[in-house]
């Protein structure tokens, strides 16, 4: 039996107490041009910003600890798992792949994301999925105020509650909320849950590895009344 080269199966361990963040990210970026380890483990992140940011290759990165701003930002194809909490803007502008946060995420999780799946097993705070453009976001806990503000495409699934102004000025994103909604934002309304929605939701929950019944969720989306400027409303400004 041919021996498998060790470097292809071994997990590459990177200690951020020993090498710089810039070096880690450069090594991850280099994978797009030259073959390298397919599984990485990052230890001692200690709240560093932009950890595993801008990856553009099929690779698995596990981060052992809490991270600061913009972790896995602009992610493409990679699977990045944070075994801890994430600071503001985790997976912001993600293109594809998966970003999984075991703990809680701070504000603007998945902001402007264009594709891929972001899973936050704990809570996400304010502005989760702000201006999302195709990303799917599944939150095991609750989200804070102004979540899915101006959301354009993709799904936001919340197993807990949603804060004030949910889906304010929303376009075509779908919001599935299991718990209480403190208040709906402008032009966001509750909508009927049809079979196709339950199927979509079931798929997302399964992909996220979260055990919840799609039948327990309500759906919210755009009333489509803010799409165009209405001259009759001019007096209101």
């Amino acid at each position: 039996m041919a021996a498998v080269p060790a470097e292809e199966v071994a997990v590459e361990v990177v200690d951020l107490e020993k090498i710089s963040l810039r070096e880690l990210n450069q090594r991850l970026h280099n994978l797009a041009h030259a073959p390298g380890p397919s599984a990485w483990r990052v230890v001692n992140p200690d709240g560093a910003h932009a950890v595993a940011c801008g990856i553009d290759v099929d690779v698995e990165v596990a981060i052992e600890g809490h991270v600061g701003y913009y972790c896995a930002g602009m992610n493409k194809r990679a699977t990045v798992r944070v075994h801890g909490n994430a600071g503001p803007g985790v997976a912001e502008n993600m293109m594809s792949g998966q970003v999984l946060v075991d703990g809680n995420a701070s504000q603007s999780a998945g902001a402007t994301g264009r594709g891929g799946l972001l899973v936050v097993r704990g809570d996400a705070s304010a502005r989760c999925g702000i201006s999302m453009k195709g990303i799917d976001i599944v939150v095991g806990g609750s989200v804070g105020h102004l979540s899915a503000f101006m959301a354009q495409r993709g799904c936001l699934v919340v197993c807990g509650d949603a804060g004030e102004a949910l889906g304010d000025s929303i376009y075509e994103a779908r919001l599935y909320i299991r718990g209480e909604v403190a208040e709906l934002g402008a032009d966001c309304v509750e909508k009927e849950v049809r079979a196709e929605h339950r199927e979509q939701l079931g798929g997302l929950l399964e992909a996220a590895g979260i055990d919840a019944d799609p039948a327990d969720f309500r759906r919210y989306g755009s009333a489509r009344k803010l799409y165009n400027f209405t001259i009759d409303n001019a007096g209101a400004y």
């Binding site: 200690d46 600061g68 701003y69 705070s125």
Partner: peptide
Amino acid sequence: EWRAISVLPGATDAETWE
């Protein structure tokens, strides 16, 4: 930010929230 707290003894096991 968490960075500021991460330098404290036992921070890894602290109860942490926003």
